[in-house]
Amino acid sequence: MIRSFKDIVLAIVCALFAGSSAWAADVNSGDYLPAPAGTNLLVFYSQYATRDEYVTASGQTISNGTGLDSYVNILRYVHYFDIGGFTVAPQVLIPAGTLYNGRLGGASFDAAAGLGDPILATTVWVVNNKASQTYIGIMPYLFLPVGQYSAGEVLNLGENRWKLDLQAGWYQGLTNGVALQLTGDVIWYGDNGRAGNGTQTLSQDPTYQLQAWLSYAFAPTWSAAVGYSQFWGGTEYLAGVPTGNETERSQVRLELSKFITPTFQVLGLVQRDVATSGGFPEAFRGTVRLLQVF
């Protein structure tokens, strides 16, 4: 029975946590506000998440003897420059962490630890209007399949497949420190030829995501924001057979940030899934982000 449980959840566990892929498409409330050309950012994320149930694509909830915890750190470097009248920000993200306390219906899974799939990304602002506080950018993320992956294991930090996330974002300053940010993503997945029992092929339909943030700079160095995210799509197939796993998720978010100095910011973020189909809902996810400008 454990073997069948492992086959059932292998795909979604990898998809959710390889290189913190759920995070990779995520944005904070001011990410589409560009910095001046020549600016560099060094960003460190430390993220803990816990889950205590699994919801099938048909709506069945498995909670007894079920859960999964994760602790992921991500180091990110960003450089801004102007080219051809556009502001551009190439960047690299390197995730590493551990997945532990994995279990489904009483069946336990070995923990995994190590490097996740590194991510290369570049933001190009096609609209950069400081006067109207209107900014529109396009950002592709490319996931490199070099993270920790052990064929036949349920929990892995890497996905053993290429992945491309194309994201577009719009940041609009409103009035009195209030701003709205909207982003949309489409994610395409390559095949993992070492899934399931280690010799089967895992494929996945594209995933889509919409995110919304409403932020308020209530003091010169403080900002707070509320957010919402909606995932859908992403039906998975193992050896050509649907696994019942998807990427359906609704999530609410709260964010608070402060610049301790003019060049150093601390940000805290809490998130919770309010509806999930075909996966492990996050009962809680907490993130601390440290950002250094130089």
Rank of each mutant, 00 (worst) to 15 (best):
A57D: 12
G286F: 03
N73S: 12
F81W: 03
S20F: 07
P34W: 00
L104D: 00
D117L: 01
Q265W: 12
Y208F: 15
S46N: 07
E248P: 04
V72M: 04
I138H: 04
T199W: 15
F218H: 15
F17C: 01
D52W: 14
L174E: 15
N28E: 08
Y208C: 13
I83F: 13
D82W: 12
A89N: 13
I119S: 08
Y77N: 13
Y32G: 02
Y45E: 15
L75K: 00
P242A: 15
A151D: 15
L33M: 04
Q292I: 04
T221R: 07
F109S: 06
Y149D: 07
A224M: 06
Q211I: 06
I136L: 07
L68N: 01
P220N: 06
G105E: 00
G67H: 10
S203H: 08
I2T: 14
W232M: 07
G67V: 05
F264S: 01
S257Y: 12
P36L: 09
I260S: 09
Q200D: 04
G234C: 06
D69Y: 06
L269R: 10
F231S: 10
Q181Y: 06
H79E: 15
N129S: 10
G234I: 11
L256T: 07
A25Q: 09
L93I: 12
P145A: 03
K163M: 12
Y80E: 15
S203I: 12
D205T: 12
A217I: 11
A107G: 05
S58L: 05
R289Q: 15
R289G: 09
G173V: 14
D117N: 04
T287N: 01
R285L: 03
T134Q: 05
L41S: 11
E53V: 14
S150Q: 12
N197S: 06
I94H: 03
F143H: 07
T98K: 02
E255G: 04
I94D: 12
G177D: 08
Y141G: 03
P281I: 07
W23E: 08
A112F: 02
V72F: 05
G105F: 01
